[in-house]
Design a protein around this nucleic acid. Structure first.
Lengths: 228, 228
DNA sequence: CGCCGCTTTGAATTACATCAAAGGACGTGG
DNA sequence: CCACGTCCTTTGATGTAATTCAAAGCGGCG
């Protein structure tokens, strides 16, 4: 697949003409990363942003004493590092590959030049940043206003497939990482999962969690019910 | 002062030509709010965004049981509600006037039209959203990774004037609101302030907090020291 | 098979919230 | 100018969710 059609297939760039995709293609650089590789760390100088072609990427911060707060776990087609392009000289968080990952890299300067000439691209980026803002807003809300069983219930409902099952492995998130995403630690997560299983809300097998009582979880997430 | 020069004086719109400011002026609506008035609430349909001309505005969310997390306290010249313009149909948080406040309101549709024609305006908005993202990122970090004395120390250092004093009144933030901003409650804030005073890091008088030991606070904020 | 990382479990600790109540500040109206 | 009510702030006693520390299963992979 050539660069132009790759770019045309990225949702962020949907609606752009062939010519515009070609211009983007001209400035994009393809890169490959392995599980555990670091794209950048909090505070690094920012020279551009990335779009995932395949693989998974974790955006996170570490506290001085090693606890990790994960901001996002991103999949194919999702961009990251984009806020640094317009605001900052450095990245506000760190990014690491969770598995073999291929990305496109867009250098700041050339991308900004392009945006100046392409209003529709600008609008796409505005929409993207706004969505990020929104996600972060609910993360703040969860961290500050909700207790962990509530966060977990909401997370499970959000992540689950139509059949009510979800596998931690298919998500490539270990329960460890799930904990980081919920703003807690593995021990606590494990205990809460057990309590939920005790109440027949879910069933846990090695690397899978199955939702047994969607309504019950929803009640929990809404705060209409509590875990005994 | 006429609309065009008002707009030209807003940092968000700096760099725009007179003509561009005039176009913005043509779509802006001036509005006035009193202390306690609500601009919009979380979930309301979003028809546009605001820029503060004078006064103060609080952006916040409420938990079901009434606890409040403040996201920002905004001053003159700062915009708010802008994320809803590009992403959403509704506002992700609520906004309330903390005192007599006058604003400009920009309706979504007309503003987006304008942006499409003005790349420099688009870049300004991109920078704005990116800054917001950055601020929110550190809020998440604080909420999830840092304990309250650490957050408070960082906040005090950030807010203080050159001379090391800051008054809660001049900020128009009651300690109540300060608590909401730090993701806690007034009682806890009060206790932590007292502990800091006990250790001669600060001095509190009715509506003023004075920093006595900037270095000590910085150590706290860095996690190199702890409150006994 | 044996090792290492992930996950679970238990017991002790802690930071923070909650509940309840008493002091101030401040402005209003008498 | 003082009295009064309201709101903000402080203080103490109590409760609890969640972290910490420690250690033991479990599982996958070389």
């Amino acid at each position: 697949m050539d660069m132009t059609s790759i770019i045309a297939s990225i949702p962020l760039f949907k609606g752009l003409s062939n010519g515009q995709c070609a211009s983007l293609g001209a400035i994009a650089v393809r890169r490959y990363f392995s599980r555990g590789d670091i794209f950048f760390q909090e505070g690094d100088d920012a020279f551009g942003f990335y779009v995932i072609l395949s693989g998974k990427v974790k955006i996170y911060k570490l506290s001085p004493d090693g606890k990790e707060q994960i901001f996002h776990i991103l999949d194919a087609h999702e961009p990251f590092g984009e806020a640094a392009v317009f605001a900052g000289l450095h990245y506000p968080a760190s990014a690491q590959a969770l598995c073999e990952t291929s990305v496109l890299f867009f250098p700041t300067q050339r991308f900004v030049d392009l945006i100046t000439r392409e209003p529709s691209l600008a609008l796409s980026m505005l929409a993207l940043l706004s969505m990020r803002l929104r996600k972060l807003t609910t993360l703040v809300e969860n961290l500050s206003l909700k207790e962990i069983p509530v966060r977990l219930a909401a997370y499970l409902l959000f992540q689950c497939n139509g059949d009510g099952s979800l596998s931690t492995s298919s998500l490539e998130v270990s329960k460890n990482q799930m904990a980081g995403l919920l703003g807690t630690i593995p021990e606590t997560l494990s205990r809460v999962l057990k309590r939920m299983a005790d109440e027949k809300l879910i069933k846990t097998s090695p690397r899978t969690i199955t939702i047994l009582d969607r309504k019950g979880l929803a009640d929990l997430a809404e705060g209409n019910r509590k875990l005994t």
